[in-house]
């Protein structure tokens, strides 16, 4: 394997994006809204299309805002349908994102005469190409700055509002009673998710985003019951996934005699493997741990009664 500075940058970009997603992801998982990342990643399509139709360019700033607005609208519509219609939140989410995606598809089809705006490119992204697009003379990839910015923003918001977020995640009505609007926290979280998703999309593709919003927090949840520890473990899992994922993307296809494959897919796979390890061997509730504890309890029972 020959490791170049390219590979280093890919891992750095992947890790920045992964942690940026894992942090708000912890709160999504705790609030039983894990599927929001998937929903937003589909629902941004009309935002991109409208931004394109208005400005006529594929410049990233208008695209970014179009997508972010569409993402926040997804959260808003979901909340409205769930509340005013008394609909299960999962179903509300499903209706909103499929409808928005359909609108986006139709808009893109209308714009297709003018330019190539492929829904596929929105969903897949290409983390392998990020080191090519650098900022000025610094040699730092733009994607690293964008995702690093998203990470920094998320970290700041979570640090400043940590107490409020914790309260909102575990007991929304208590938060309301104490005077922290849980509605506001909800929408703030949704905005964070939407912004992070969109920032990551453009550079690394939606698979990493969806996977990193859910899998590292779920892994952390299996390993701890404390929120600060959970955030820490989720971030570590995210970084590890990025490293292992890129290594896997280079190495695993060789075993089958094939070329290297997409890093983003392999990062998702690496996160899945880490989750499975936690699932099996978590000290408190891993399957294997529990089975062994069970067996040793079985053995010790006769002794204690004897």
């Amino acid at each position: 394997m020959n490791w170049t500075s390219f590979d280093t940058w890919i891992v750095v970009v992947g890790a920045l994006c992964a942690v940026a997603c894992a942090l708000p992801g912890c709160f999504l998982v705790l609030r039983k809204m894990s599927m929001m990342g998937d929903a937003i990643s589909h629902a941004v399509l009309p935002g991109l299309a409208i931004a394109f139709l208005i400005t006529g360019t594929r410049a990233s700033v208008p695209m970014f805002f179009g997508a972010a607005i569409a993402g926040v609208l997804t959260a808003l519509f979901t909340q409205w349908i769930a509340r005013f219609g008394n609909v299960d939140r999962g179903a509300a989410m499903g209706i909103v994102f499929t409808t928005l995606f359909a609108v986006g598809l139709i808009l893109i089809r209308q714009a297709a005469d003018h330019v190539d705006l492929d829904p596929g490119c929105v969903l897949y992204g290409a983390i392998e190409l990020t080191p090519l697009d650098t900022v000025g003379q610094t040699g730092i990839p733009r994607a690293a700055l964008v995702n690093g910015g998203a990470l920094l923003g998320n970290l700041l918001i979570i640090l400043v509002l940590f107490k409020e977020f914790r309260l909102g995640a575990f007991d929304a009505s208590l938060a309301d009673t104490l005077g922290f609007s849980s509605q506001f926290l909800h929408y703030l979280l949704m905005t964070m998710v939407a912004m992070t998703t969109v920032a990551a999309f453009e550079s690394v593709g939606s698979i990493i985003v969806i996977a990193m919003l859910i899998v590292p927090p779920a892994t952390a949840l299996l390993l701890t019951r404390k929120l600060p520890t959970m955030l820490l473990i989720a971030s570590l899992t995210a970084v590890l996934s990025a490293i292992l994922g890129h290594l896997g993307a280079i190495q695993i296809p060789r075993w089958f005699g094939m070329e290297a494959t997409t890093t983003s897919g392999m990062i998702a796979l690496a996160a899945g493997v880490l989750f499975t390890l936690a699932w099996l061997f978590s000290p408190s509730e891993g399957l294997v741990t529990k089975a062994r504890r069970h067996r040793s309890e079985d053995l010790s029972l006769p002794e204690s009664t004897a």
């Binding site: 998982v29 894990s34 698979i207 859910i214 899945g272 989750f275």
Partner: peptide
């Protein structure tokens, strides 16, 4: 077997399987 809820289980399967799918599609293309 875990105390994770339905939404996490669905999200996990969705993202990991889809990731594996994209990676293996890329592989078989070669």
């Amino acid at each position: 077997t875990t105390r994770l809820r339905d939404d996490v289980a669905m999200g996990f399967v969705l993202s990991v399987f889809f990731g594996v799918g994209v990676a293996s599609l890329q592989m078989v293309q070669g």
